Amino acid sequence: MNSLSEIVEVVIGVDTHVETHTAAVVDARTGAVLDELTVHTTPQGYQDLVDLADAHSALRVWAIEGTGGHGAGLVRHLGRAEEVVVELDRPERTKRRHGAKSDLLDAVRAAREALARPKLGTPRAGGDRQALSVLLAARRSAVDASTVAQRQLFSLVIAAPEHLRTKLRGRKLPEMVRVAARLRIQSNWDRESAATATTLRTLARRTQALTIEAADLEKQILAIVRSWRPDLLDQPGIGPIVAATVLCAWSHPGRIHTEAGFAMLAGVAPIPANSGQVTTRYRLNRHGDRQLNRALHTIVLVRQRYHEPTKAYTDRRTTQGKTPREIRRCLKRYIA
C-alpha cells in the first residue's frame, strides 16, 4: 500500500474516553473534515457512529486510539459489522503542545495521522489473546501486592518488640511468613505487642493468599498457552508468563509486518544516532511495549545462566570488549 488515500474515500478518526467517543469524518484525499459526532459508549452510540459513516461512503477505514482500552467496545462492535479498523497510539506530543486540545481535534488528528502513515497497525485480537491479557494483569497485581506485604512484614519485624522479633529473627523471608501467619496473641501482652503481632499475622496471611492466587492464575495462563502455541514453551528460557506476554504483544498473524517491526515494538531495536561522518552510533531504544521488553530480558538472563550456546556467545563477546549490558542488548535483539 502506497497511501491510504488511494484505497478509501473517508477516514473516521475516533477519540475515545470512558463515557463518550468523538468521531470526525475526514476526506481521504483533501484532509477536510466532513462531519463529526459525539456519542455515549453504549451499543446505540456505537451504531450511531456507523450510521454517521454510512451517510458518507462505504469505502472507509476507522482510525481509533485506545483500541484495547477505552475503545475496546467500539472495536468489537465494528468487528461484528466487518468494518476496517486501524490502531493508533496517542498523537505526537510535539504536535499537541503547539496547538489547541479538544476531543474533536484529537479525532481529526487521528484520521490525518492514519493517512500519513506508510504502515498501519490492526487492533489486538480478542479470544485467547484477550484472555491471556486479563489473566496476566490479575497475576501481576497479585504478585505486586504480595511483594508489598512481604516488605511491610520484614520492616515491621525489625522494629517489633523483642519477644516477637526473637521468634522471627534470622529466618528467610518465606519461613518468616509461615511463622508470622501462625502467631497467637497472648492475653498478658501490652497493646503494642498485641497490635504488632496482629498486623504481622495479617500481612503474612495476606501474602500466603496472594501467592496461592498468583499460582492459580499461572495455571490458567499455562493451559491457554499450551492449547494455542505450545512450541513457545520448548524454547530455552521461555515459561508460561513470558510466552503469554509475547503472545499478547504479537496478537495475531499480520499485525506485525516484519521481525524488525517486532523488535521495535519490544523496544530492542537500536536507534541510529548518526551525524556527519559518524555512521556507527546508536541510541538505546526506550520506547515500545515495556512488558514485552521485560519478557525478552528474562529470556536472556535465563539463557545466560543455563543455555550453553548463549553462555559461549557471552564469553566470546566479553573477550571482544563488550560490557555485560551491551551483550544483553545484542541477545535481546537476536531473540526478538
Rank of each mutant, 00 (worst) to 15 (best):
H297Y: 14
G127C: 08
G13K: 10
R129D: 00
A138W: 03
P161H: 05
D89R: 03
S187D: 15
L203S: 01
G239E: 01
E175V: 15
T198L: 13
Q152C: 07
R201I: 04
W62Q: 06
A215Q: 15
P43I: 02
L203G: 02
I299C: 06
P230S: 09
K167D: 11
Y334G: 11
L59K: 13
T38E: 03
L37N: 05
T199V: 09
R229Y: 12
D144F: 07
A72Y: 14
G45S: 04
R294N: 11
R303E: 02
A181L: 12
E213R: 15
P161S: 00
L120S: 02
T318V: 02
K95S: 12
D190K: 00
A110S: 08
S3P: 11
T319M: 13
K167R: 15
R124E: 04
D128Y: 08
A149Y: 01
G267L: 02
Y313G: 01
T211M: 11
A260E: 10
D289Y: 05
D234V: 10
Q208H: 12
A209N: 09
S227N: 12
R171D: 05
T22I: 01
R60T: 12
R112K: 14
P174T: 04
R140S: 08
H56N: 00
L200R: 01
R93E: 12
V26E: 02
L105G: 02
E192P: 03
P123K: 03
K219V: 15
D48W: 06
Y334F: 12
L210T: 08
T198V: 12
I64F: 03
A195E: 12
A260D: 07
V61P: 00
E87F: 03
I7R: 14
P43M: 06
V33C: 09
G99P: 05
S155R: 15
D144G: 11
V26W: 00
E87P: 07
D89Q: 05
L183E: 07
S57P: 04
R76W: 07
N2C: 12
A295F: 00
Y334H: 14
C330P: 04
A100G: 15
V50N: 03
V225D: 09
S141M: 11
T207F: 04
I7D: 14
R129M: 06
L284R: 10
N188E: 15
V134C: 12
L183V: 09
P253E: 04
K101H: 07
R303W: 05
D190C: 08
E9I: 01
A142T: 07
T207P: 06
V8N: 07
S141F: 09
A149R: 00
E308K: 02
T199N: 04
G321P: 02
V157L: 05
G170H: 08
L135T: 02
H21E: 09
R151H: 13
L168C: 09
L135D: 07
R109F: 08
H17E: 06
A160N: 03
